[in-house]
Design a protein around this nucleic acid. Sequence first.
RNA 1: GGGCUUAUAGCUCAGAAGGUUAGAGCGCGCGCCUGAUAAGCGCGAGGUCCCUGGUUCGAUUCCAGGUAAGCCCA
Length: 1047
Amino acid sequence: MFEEVSPQFTFAEKEKQTLTFWRENNIFQKSMDMHKDAPPFVFLEGPPFANAPPGVHHVLARIMKDAVCRYKTMTGHYVHRKAGWDTHGLPVEYQVEKQLNITNKAELEAYGVQNFIEKCKENVFQYEQDWREMTERIGFWVNLDEAYITLSNDYIESVWWVLRQAWDKKLLYQGHKVQPYCYRCGTTLASHEVALGYQEVADPSIFVRFPLKNKENTYLLVWTTTPWTLPSNLAVAVGEDYDYVAVEDNGQKLILAKECISSLFDDAPPEIIESYKGTDLRKWEYEPLFDSGQHDEKSHYIVTADFVTTTEGSGLVHIAPAFGQDDYDIGQKHNLPFVQLVGDDGKFVPDVKDVWAGEYVKDADPMIIENLDERGLLFKATEYTHQYPFCWRCDNPLLYYARESWFIRTTAIRDQMQQHNQEINWYPEHIKDGRFGNWLENNIDWGLSRERYWGTPLPVWICDDCGHQHCVGSIAELKEIGKDVPDDIELHRPYVDDVILTCEKCSGTMHRVQDVIDCWFDSGCAHTAQWHYPFENKELFERSYPVDFISEAIDQTRGWFYSLLATGTLLYDKPAYKNCLCLELILASDGSKMSKSRGNTVDPWTILNEQGADAVRWYLFTASPPWTQLTFQIEGVDEALKKFMGTLQNVYSFFVMYANLEQVDVLEDAPPVAERAILDTWILSRLHTLINKVRDDMENYHLTNAPRAIESFVDDLSNWYVRRSRDRFWGAEAGQDKQAAYATLYEVLVTVAKLAAMFIPFLSDELYRNLVGSLAPDAPLSVHLAEYPVADSELIDSVLERDMAFTREVISMGHAARNRSGIKTRQPLAEITLGGLSDEEKETVNRMASFVHDELNIKEIVFTEKLDTFAQVSLKPNFKVLGPKYGKGVQAIAKALATADTMQLKAELEANGSLQIEALGETYTLETSEIDMQTQNREGFFVEVDARKFVALSTELTHELVLEGMARELVNKIQNMRKDADFNVSDRIKLSVNTSSELVMEAFDTHRDYILAETLTTEVVESLGEKAFSLDQKLNGEPATLSVEQV
RNA sequence: GGGCUUAUAGCUCAGAAGGUUAGAGCGCGCGCCUGAUAAGCGCGAGGUCCCUGGUUCGAUUCCAGGUAAGCCCA
């Protein structure tokens, strides 16, 4: 006996019971342990931040990971699932600053770095409990208790080791990086913060004459909107392919882009004296406008650059490498000196001898403009309105500013990274050579350092005396060479800042650089640091690198996908991962981005509590491929629940209900498949085809096609197999066919539970445990400990599947014809006529005739060749065949066929196997295979026509048919009364029929046995007492009073 | 401004190595069935396959250029 399936339940409630079962029986752990010695499939969890509650997009990522890991487990792999947490970085610092009402570094230092760091540690795990609960509730199996945490000493030590490897390979260096910097807060800003603070402002827009060397009275006309950067000018950039001219202006020669003339000389166009290409100007030298100091490197000459435009300005761009990324890159490329005349405080340094020394740069703008004007170098000064970033905290304008930074020289390993990228399987594939490939191609060195507090400290110490630098690679080394290092040193600021080393060169005192590192470097070391390699777990690490599978959202191309690959390449010269499933964003139901500020986010808990985890999982798996954007619709979750899970649940409860009621032993006496009914062999064939399909999709990480195929199978199972087999389960006598039906449905349900286990782990397990656990106590406890199904090719009969599909198509057309005729299905009809079928198709219909009879309630199937009596016939060329053969002629043939006498051509074709037709003065001979015969609807609503066949209904009713229809009407009415009266399905009844209609009486007498059997009537009586359930009915228009009562 | 992606029915999505009647589910309308009831089934009405050019006998599909949306970068 199976456990009864109660009709009163919610999936969400049942899922909670399943969670308890898993927990109490350690199913997750067992599913890993049982494969301890199996080939490993290595999964690496991208560590989330737990300082905000999880959202639906996290649910998406987690179930994708889960499905792959579960699948791999069930197909016999050892899948270790270690969780991880990302913990360092600016977002945490800002949250803490906000809490403490700290607005700049000075306030923070005053509060105390140590206190601050302790607050950060608390903040990081603020929502850990939420994450744990969500993770468990959605059925994401990952081991949270052995999670790697990027703030742990072990993790940091491994990251230090990685940095040391880079150092030893000369890939870690100090340089400059242009960053948006707030002089008031004393900090650089991350890009997303910059995006917060754009405002429209008016800045000066000036055109300056730069006197050329060796060309008398000739000036470059240079544009800038930041006069304060002019003292740091070191070059002028032009566009390589632009046209430049020298024009005559008040006795001077000015050089500018030809296209800019009109915007700069509105009144009278000046005379053009000479013309050049951008490349011609290259290396021309000019006199510095201001004293920028003495340098070894050459400076103040023209270079070419691709960012120069002529839509604004003059086509000549002033370059100050200290203030702008483009400028900085130019400086690097041309080996310009580095001139930084502005200090951390946003003011000109005292070295500047001009009047603006010590002035805040923006305040110095007018002074500089005035100075240029006095010297006759100012051509034009106006204002320029544009978007400029301001500090989102203090509202001061940001300065783009080259700051001392530490870099990883990723450009040195770019070729290897590109090569490794080619070895990675990307899903979807276009990421490889698209977004990710492009990113690698344009790779620049990784700006690693952050002038902040909460992060992995950069383990570089510098000698105060001689400037010697040393990178520490382990705690042991730190203790060995550091002075008085506490035994339990914590590798965070401010604790490591206190460690002092002795310089090996000059015995001087070495202090650590103040920076921490980019937290993307932390998570990028996960493949190594999660094991505390190389200090521990050597073997484990070696077995786990590269990892088989990672999956995160697409924004990680520049984030984790990149950082893993970069560190992996740097350390081991191997790709860090083999398969990467790249997820897209989830949009809100209105198609816009989900964000807290818009208030259109979806709280996963609402859904988990109402519809449950399986429903939301199924929705996310099937709605669209995870790499396309999904517009999240709650209705979609409902649909998944009703459409798919409801259907599966119904089939399951149908099976359990009747198996228990009929006391069938499904495992005993199961007949060999070959001896089962055609429906059984058909559904088993479909099942095994499905197994192949699902496995194939899963091997290719297509997590959408697989469940979609399962859904379509379950639909067939319910709406064809069970529907057509219903009476085999409860009407038939015990015997081989009944056994076959039960055995088949049992096998199918158990297999579907296994097939779908990685998508709907809860419902699958419930089905499995009841169906298998009840009968086979030795079987695995849970579906998640079972082996994944393997297709038996012996059971696959593709011809049968095709034939069944064809039969259902014919039946569907029959339904349509019945609909048109308006005669309800309960009324039997004498015959249907089928036309346009090939001999093979006729044979198929004959073989499947019983389905057609039962579904359409007709007595006979007739075939006809006379298409034209029922449908309009037209002939068209088979374009696919004739197109390549005749080219242009094919259109003429089509025209000729359309205008010719169709019936005559058809006769010719049938007689000769070919026909002749004239088109464009040529005669073409066309074989049967080169012609498409198409049918269209002719008058009359009882015929259903598709492209090449039709189904016609005979609507004439004989007296016998009317009686039979009335008998079925009686059965229908009585069944409804049974239901209305709340009888059990197996209750036997007494029945009385009182009617003045002779037709009803005759039908009742004629079909008495049938009616009694269908309605479980054991006794027909004249009348029933008051207890009986009684109703006046109209039966096909005839009056009758029916009464029923339980025996 | 650059790169990548997407655009098919009211909504969510399939699809076609280019072939002349483009599919499904939901929703809507009509009907059926009910010994599966959080029911179920059938049928129907819904489409310039984003736009403009090009290649081709033939383009919604391939190419180019737009437009719109999203992400990333500047």
